[in-house]
Amino acid sequence: MVASGQERILDNPKFQELVRTRSGFAWTLAAVMLAIYLCFIFLVAFAQPLMAMKVGGGVTSLGIVLGLVVIVSAFLLTGIYVQRANSRFDALTRDLQKDIA
């Protein structure tokens, strides 16, 4: 099926839309994750006094808060992707499968 219908799928506008939107979305999220993480590592490596800065008047430091932010953002980003994939990308894939069946 793939061998015979493969040209047809490649030229199908739905396939092109699916691939374009999904890979754009996935690479953007991957870049966001990488950027957040590298920012954190750069701060740890180059800006230790900043990371040691107190927030909220107690002993809690900016570094701890940012660390938790990175952990939570990793989870949120996967959530955002799954949400989008379950609705939009799966619908596009189903459409496409109907087209070529």
């Binding site: 996935a26 690479w27 999220l29 991957a30 994750m33 990488l34 957040i36 993480y37 954190f40 590592i41 740890v44 990371m51 430091s61 570094g63 701890i64 660390g67 990175v70 952990i71 990793a74 980003l77 996967t78 992707y81 799954v82 994939a85």
Partner: peptide, 24 residues
């Protein structure tokens, strides 16, 4: 203290990458 967090974060942030680029 804090330094332990650096490792946890490193181990965790690979997962979004796995999801976005590899898993499916």
């Amino acid at each position: 203290g804090f330094d332990g967090l650096i490792y946890s974060i490193g181990f965790l942030v690979g997962w979004p990458i796995v999801l976005f680029l590899i898993a499916e």
